[in-house]
Amino acid sequence: MSEHADTAHPALRHHFDDLNQQHAAGTLGMWFFLVTEILFFGPLFFTYALFRSGSLDPSFQNAFIAASHHQNITLGLTNTIVLIASSLTVALGVYFAQTNKKKPLVLMLVLTLLCGVAFLVIKGIEYNQHFAHHLFPGQGFHWDGAPELARGGQMFYILYFCMTGLHAFHMVIGIGIFIYILMRAMRNDFSSDYYVPIEVSGLYWHFVDIVWIFLFPMLYLIDPASKH
């Protein structure tokens, strides 16, 4: 690719020499942002590990199992599949942008957004069930299991709401980003020369997917067989 062709590209920002430099900077920037994200979710994972391991209070081990029995595995599994499917559509979106296929690209972006919204709707249904069962932590929390497990059960739901809430917040941001990407795709902004905004937004989306990949077994699948 010659430098002259690059310089002429309308998407080239003034402070970069060529599109290659601009793309490299954008991609690297997103990766460093994901570093921050890893250390943003990380302490919650640590807090979860600390309480679930029973290092502070051994009764929390059983409390977490009992609390997770209130989780709806079917809905959790559905959401996992929806989210992984959305990761596939994002990846295919990058592929169609790289190969200059606009219509499939737009389709993939629309599918991604639909998956994202579907995830949030299902999450909302779950939250609604938790509220109905008084599982939201705080004054209204009601524990119908063994009373000695109540504190640990509430701790599980504090972490559940913090982690899934933060994750859902990232989903909302991701949907916003992909609405913007979709509008640009429909405006014919992207081509095999210039697709990095999709790639970079995709990195964020995949990261949010990975967080869920870990959250699913942590929050839904703690010894489900022991539920009677």
């Binding site: 460093f32 570093v35 921050t36 994200e37 250390l39 943003f40 990380g42 302490p43 919650l44 807090t47 913090c162």
Partner: peptide, 14 residues
Amino acid sequence: QLLATPVLGIALLL
């Protein structure tokens, strides 16, 4: 800044 600040962010949110 990248590695440490988010941990503070979560601690403050909690």
